[in-house]
Write a protein that binds this DNA or RNA. Structure first.
Lengths: 213, 213
DNA sequence: GCGAAATCTTAGACCGAGTATAAAATTTGG
DNA sequence: CCAAATTTTATACTCGGTCTAAGATTTCGC
């Protein structure tokens, strides 16, 4: 299982190398200013090879998507029997934060990552597409469990909306210049508030009067 | 305010004409098989003019987005004082359905519309992007109302997820071959179930009894 | 190990979306 | 009816992405 032969190992190495070279160029010069031909040249490889590993230019930057997708799938699939999805997801996000994982969004590095992302509409569009793929995956898993296609789709989409909000909130604050440590501390509450709303709904609990505006 | 002069009227007419010509070509031959140069030729206009009205090729097909965005904004902005957003949105979607509006999703025409959409990843990506823009708009409006940026963002995203699910459910069924009339009848319950979940959350609660359907 | 089959890489030509520029056509307002 | 403002057009160009056929490399049966 680990032995995959020389060929497979070389491929993985090449893939990583190309993505790293590309990311370096993007960060220093911006996404649009770098052509795929340049990336190929800098990586010592042909243009065709780049497209062989990464179907779209955007995938060179957002190359961790598949890993994330599989991890989220595992969170849902491997949760204790009978545990609500929201509970498993909530726990997972707290762990992500505690581990200082980049995908928690509450980490200093996001500034560079996000500014490249924001500079290119194509890149943003691709990220949105990836978030959508998360929704599709969740819908599939939940539909398997319950058999209710519609309910699964709805819950999956609500869950995805919650997850993306949780991620983007700290990113936005850090990009805006807020203190990273403060953001990180606040993020615990952000996660809990988000999942509370998801679990209990946005309907007026009793009277939701604007307490004086 | 209504009188905009010859120039403005001509521009609107040209815009509509180009979009209609393009849509016709897309429906008969598929999105990717039609080039912008062809569209320009068929519309009796230069390629530059096409891009002048529609920044991206995809916008030629999804040209009602801005109208929809403004309508949804009005639904939220013009709702009776104190009314929850979900109530206004729920009512609006019931009205859309009752009026047989294409955006209700429960109408025979969606079959052609959706098959063109599905045939092109670029087109799907653009639609997802537009859904995202709805979220941004809602977040802005809600943030104005409450002042709570995070809450606004979260509610807006959940609301958007609900709306898109409500739309795609009947579309999926009709494309899959279900009877359109049946889908249309079922859609009332779909709308109510979706907004019920949004209002009351997906957390485990007692028994969610449908007040007999 | 050897040689053939399978797979990966490459060069090069090609297509189409989208941009830049400057000239030509058209509407506007005086 | 003229001059300014705006729109349309032709043309040339860049770049992402695909296609093809040939060359290089790994694999695997013998």
């Amino acid at each position: 299982m680990a032995e995959q032969g020389l060929r497979e190992r070389k491929k993985q190495a090449t893939r990583r190398m190309i993505a790293d070279v590309a990311t370096g160029l993007f960060v220093t010069r911006g996404f649009d200013a770098v052509t795929v031909a340049e990336i190929a040249e800098a990586a010592g490889v042909s243009k065709m090879t780049v497209f062989n590993y990464f179907p779209r230019k955007e995938d060179l930057y957002l190359d961790r998507h598949l890993d994330r997708l599989r991890e989220l799938e595992a969170v849902v699939r491997d949760r204790p029997a009978g545990e609500p999805v929201t509970t498993a997801m909530r726990r997972y996000h707290h762990e992500l934060l505690a581990a200082g994982h980049p995908l928690s969004g509450a980490i200093a590095g996001v500034h560079g990552f996000w500014s490249v992302l924001q500079s290119s509409p194509a890149l943003m569009a691709r990220m949105i597409e990836q978030e959508h793929e998360i929704g599709d995956m969740l819908a599939g898993v939940l539909a398997e469990e319950t058999g209710d296609e519609f309910s699964a789709r709805l819950v999956a989409n609500l869950l995805t909306a919650t997850i993306t909000t949780i991620f983007r909130t700290p990113v936005g604050r850090i990009v805006a210049g807020d203190d990273v440590e403060q953001v990180r501390r606040d993020q615990v509450a952000v996660i809990d508030r988000a999942f509370d709303v998801l679990e209990q709904g946005i309907g007026p609990r009793r009277e939701q009067v604007h307490s004086d505006g």
